[in-house]
Design a protein around this nucleic acid. Structure first.
Length: 674
RNA sequence: GCCAACCUAGCUCAGGGGUAGAGCAGCGGUUUCGUAAACCGCAGGUCGUGGGUUCAAAUCCCAUGGUUGGCUCCA
C-alpha cells in the first residue's frame, strides 16, 4: 500500500467539521457545498478547507436524491468487491449510480460471462460484506502512485482510464473492508461512511456491453442492481415495476385485441380491427388539426429508384437501415448482382459503388423527406405559395437490428404524422411558433401536460455555413422564448443538416418519451436545388422544416396506451359503448338499440350471450369500454339504456338521448374557440 | 449484431428422461338471471423449428427462428 499523501494542515474531513458544529446526524451521508458549482456533492470522508463549509452547505441525508446516489454508488463498490472475491481475476472498469440503481462493468477472466445463478451468489456475498459494517476510506493519491498500484493489481482498464485524464486531475482511491483485506477502487466518490449503511439491495440483470460503450472494444459483462435507503423503499420500487408491467402496451395490446405480432414479419405489427379503429381515429384527429392549421396532405410513392436516395444522402449514410425492393429481372446478370452486393455491404461505399446502386436498385422509403423535396421541385414554385406545409402519413420501413426492436415502440414498419414545411428564411420563426401552438393543443388533448424541450445544436460534422446555423438555432430558441417555454440545450446533438427541437413528455407513471420534433434543414433544399421565385422574379432557396407531432404513430399508440392503461377516451375508443343484456329475452331490443346507435355513427359492441349480467359486466370492464349499456325489461319497455360509465351508474336514459350524448362526446377534441 | 434468459392449447402457466396437464377463453347443453366470474359436458398441443445423445427426449446437447431485459449514464 503506498503511503497516503500528506494533507494540507488546514484541511479537515467533513465528518470532523460537522461533528464540531453538532450537525452530524445519524442519517447524514455528506454535504452539498454552496461554494462549489460542480462536484458540489462531498461525502464525510473528504477533507476540505473549513472556510468552504462556512460559505454554506446542505446536509445530504440518506433519504434525499443525493443520498440515494451515494448509497447506490457505494453498493456498486460492494458488488465489485463481491464479484472479485467470487471470481478471482475479474477486472473492474466503471461502476456508476444510475437513475434507477447502479451497474458495474467487468471483464471476467477468460472472457467468461455471468449467469443469473451467479447473481444470487454475488448478492449473498454482498450481504456478507454489508454485515461487516466495514468503513469506507478515502485516500488522495498521486497519479504515479495510482498508476503503479493499479498496474500491480492488474487493473488494466483503470490504468488506461487514468492515462486519459488531463494533467492536474486530483486522483483519489476509495477502500472498504477490514484492514489487510481491503477492496480498493480508483474512484472520486462520494461514498457512505461504512458498508452497514447499505442493505436494501437487489441485483436485477446481467448484460453485455463494450468497454467505454464503443462497439469493437473488448466485450464486458455489466451487472445491474438497485439499492435503496431501506427495505420499504426497495419494495415500493419493485411494486412500481410490477405496475408498469401491468400496463405494458404489449400485454394490453394482446388482451384488448388491438394488435399482434407474428414471426412471419418480425417487429412489424398487425393492427387487429379494434386497434385499427384507434389508429385511424388518431390519424383523423391529426388531419382535423391539419385542416385548421393550414397543412396540405399528400400521398407519395413507397418505392423509389435509388437515384433519389443518392441525392438525399440516404444511400451513403442510411443504407444499412433500408430495405431494397427487388424483382426477378434484377437477377439475370450474376456479375451485376455481385457488384451490387459488394456496394451494399461496403462500410464506406465508393462514389462509383453509390452510382451503381443508384442506377440499378430501388429502395423502400425509410423517410418522407426525399419524396417531398422531389414533389416540391415538380414545378416552378412562387413565394406566394409559401409556407407550403406538406403532410404525409406514408408508411415507412426501416431495418432495425434484432436487439433494439420493442413492441410497438420500436418497429420496422410504421408511419409518422410527418410534414415538411417549405418556407422562406423569414418564415422559419413564425412557423416554429405556430408548430408549438399546434403541439400544445395536441399534447393537451392526450393529457401530456409535462412537456420538456431540448434544443440539439450544431454537431461537429455538419453542412452549411456558421451564419446559417446561427440563424437556425436562433429561430428555434427565439420561438421557444416567444412562447414562454423553457428548454435545455443538448450541445452538438443536432442532425448533420440542422439543429432540432425534441419534445419529451412524461407519462402517467413518470416515464419520459420523445414524441415530437422540429428540425431546420438547409441541406436537403441544397441537394435537391429547390427554388421558389421571389417577388422580384429571382430564384431563392427555401428552407425545409422537418417536423412530427406525435412522431411515429405506432410508438405514440404504445406510449398513449400505457399512459391511459388501456382506458381510451370516448372519442378514441374502438367501441364507445357495449350493450349487455340482462337475459337473452331482451336480445331483440338490444339488437334494435345497437342498430340505432350504429346508424347514428356510434361505435358499438354487444354481449347478448347467456351469461349472467355480473359476468358480462366483468368481461366488458376488462375490455375497457368507456360506457356499458344494460338492457333489461325496464329498458326494453321504455326504449332506454341503463348507462354505466366506468364504475358509475347513470340509470336508464332514453335511447335517443344516449345517441346524442355519445355523438357529442365522440367528436375530436378542439379548443373552445375553434 | 453482441450479452443473458425465455418459447408447452387462443391467453396465463404447471410438468425438467418413461403414455402431454390446469384455469380462463372457445364450442354444445341446462339455467333466463338487474350490475365485477351460474352449472354440466366437449373440443383444442407433432411442447418454436431442425439435428444429435438415449431402449426412451417437452425434459439433456448443438444449431436455427422468434421473444424478453440490457448494450446512453463514465474513475
Amino acid at each position: 500500500m503506498p503511503p497516503p499523501m500528506t494533507l494540507d494542515s488546514s484541511m479537515q474531513s467533513v465528518r470532523e467539521l460537522l461533528l464540531a458544529r453538532g450537525a452530524l446526524k445519524d442519517d447524514v451521508l455528506g454535504v452539498r457545498l454552496s461554494s462549489r458549482t460542480d462536484d458540489a456533492l462531498v461525502d464525510l470522508h473528504t477533507a476540505i478547507d473549513p472556510a468552504e463549509l462556512e460559505k454554506g452547505f446542505t446536509a445530504v441525508t440518506r433519504g434525499s436524491a443525493d443520498g440515494l446516489e451515494i448509497i447506490r454508488h457505494s453498493t456498486a463498490h460492494v458488488m465489485a468487491d463481491a464479484v472479485q472475491q467470487l471470481f478471482p481475476g475479474t477486472k473492474v472498469t466503471f461502476g456508476p449510480a444510475t437513475e434507477n440503481g447502479f451497474y458495474y462493468d467487468f471483464d471476467r477472466k477468460g472472457g467468461g460471462t455471468f449467469s443469473e445463478d451467479d447473481l444470487v451468489a454475488i448478492e449473498a456475498k454482498m450481504r456478507e460484506i454489508i454485515a461487516q459494517k466495514a468503513p469506507f476510506r478515502r485516500e488522495p493519491i498521486s497519479r504515479e502512485a495510482a498508476v503503479a498500484l493499479f498496474t500491480k493489481m492488474g487493473e488494466t482498464y483503470k490504468v488506461e482510464w487514468m492515462e486519459t485524464l488531463p494533467a492536474g486531475t486530483d486522483f483519489t482511491v476509495y477502500r472498504h473492508g477490514a484492514a489487510g483485506s481491503e477492496w480498493v477502487d480508483f474512484c472520486k466518490g462520494p461514498h457512505v461512511p461504512h458498508t452497514g449503511e447499505l442493505g436494501a439491495i437487489k441485483l436485477t440483470a446481467v448484460s453485455g456491453t463494450y468497454w467505454r460503450g464503443i462497439e469493437g472494444n473488448p466485450q464486458l459483462q455489466r451487472i445491474y442492481g438497485t439499492a435503496f435507503p431501506d427495505e420499504a423503499a426497495l419494495k415500493a420500487h419493485l411494486e412500481q415495476l410490477e405496475q408498469a408491467k401491468a400496463r405494458d402496451h404489449r400485454k394490453l395490446g394482446r388482451e384488448l385485441e388491438l394488435f399482434a405480432f407474428d414471426a412471419a414479419a418480425p417487429a412489424s405489427p398487425f393492427f387487429l380491427p379494434r386497434g385499427a379503429k384507434v389508429y385511424h381515429r388518431l390519424v383523423d384527429y391529426v388531419r382535423d388539426l391539419y385542416v385548421r392549421h393550414g397543412y396540405d396532405e399528400v400521398i407519395t410513392p413507397q418505392i423509389y429508384g435509388n437515384e433519389l436516395y443518392k441525392k438525399s444522402g440516404h444511400l451513403a449514410n442510411y443504407r444499412e437501415n433500408m430495405y431494397l425492393a427487388v424483382t426477378a429481372d434484377d437477377f439475370v446478370d450474376p456479375a451485376k448482382v455481385d457488384a451490387i452486393r459488394a456496394a451494399l455491404t461496403a462500410e464506406h461505399a465508393t462514389e462509383a459503388q453509390l452510382d451503381l446502386l443508384a442506377a440499378e436498385t430501388r429502395g423502400v422509403k425509410p423517410m418522407n423527406c426525399p419524396g417531398h423535396a422531389q414533389l416540391f421541385s415538380h414545378r416552378k414554385r412562387s413565394y406566394r405559395e409559401l409556407p407550403f406545409r406538406c403532410a404525409d402519413f406514408g408508411r415507412l420501413h426501416r431495418y432495425e437490428r434484432g436487439g433494439v426492436v420493442h413492441g410497438l415502440a420500436r418497429v420496422r414498419t410504421f408511419c409518422q404524422d410527418d410534414a415538411h414545411i417549405f418556407c422562406t428564411p423569414a418564415q422559419m420563426q413564425p412557423e416554429i411558433s405556430a408548430f408549438n401552438a399546434l403541439l400544445d393543443e395536441a399534447y393537451g388533448t392526450f393529457g401530456f401536460t409535462d412537456v420538456r424541450v431540448r434544443l440539439a445544436t450544431r454537431p461537429e460534422k455538419r453542412v452549411g455555413s456558421d451564419a446559417l446555423w446561427d440563424s437556425a438555432e436562433h429561430a428555434l430558441a427565439d420561438a421557444m422564448r416567444a412562447a414562454g417555454r423553457s428548454f435545455t440545450v443538448a450541445e452538438g446533438e443536432g442532425a448533420f443538416y440542422g439543429p432540432k427541437l425534441e419534445y419529451h413528455v412524461k407519462d402517467a407513471i413518470g416515464r419520459s418519451w420523445q414524441l415530437g420534433t422540429m428540425q431546420v434543414d438547409f441541406n436537403m433544399p441544397e441537394r435537391f436545388e429547390l427554388a421558389y421565385v421571389d417577388h422580384e422574379g429571382k430564384d431563392q432557396r427555401p428552407v425545409m422544416l422537418h417536423r412530427a407531432l406525435l412522431g411515429s404513430l405506432e410508438r405514440f399508440f404504445a406510449v398513449y396506451l400505457e399512459h391511459v392503461a388501456g382506458n381510451f377516451p370516448v372519442w378514441l375508443a374502438p367501441e364507445q359503448v357495449c350493450i349487455l343484456t340482462v337475459s337473452e329475452k331482451f336480445e331483440a331490443y338490444a339488437r334494435e338499440a345497437e342498430q340505432v346507435l350504429r346508424l347514428a355513427g356510434v361505435r358499438v359492441a354487444t354481449d347478448l350471450g347467456p351469461d349472467k349480467l355480473g359476468a358480462k359486466i366483468r368481461a366488458a370492464r376488462q375490455m375497457r369500454y368507456p360506457y356499458l349499456a344494460v338492457v333489461g325489461g325496464k329498458e326494453a319497455e321504455n326504449r332506454a339504456l341503463a348507462l354505466r360509465p366506468g364504475n358509475d351508474d347513470l340509470g336508464a336514459i332514453p335511447l335517443a338521448e344516449v345517441v346524442q350524448k355519445l355523438l357529442a362526446e365522440g367528436v375530436f377534441p378542439r379548443p373552445q374557440n375553434s
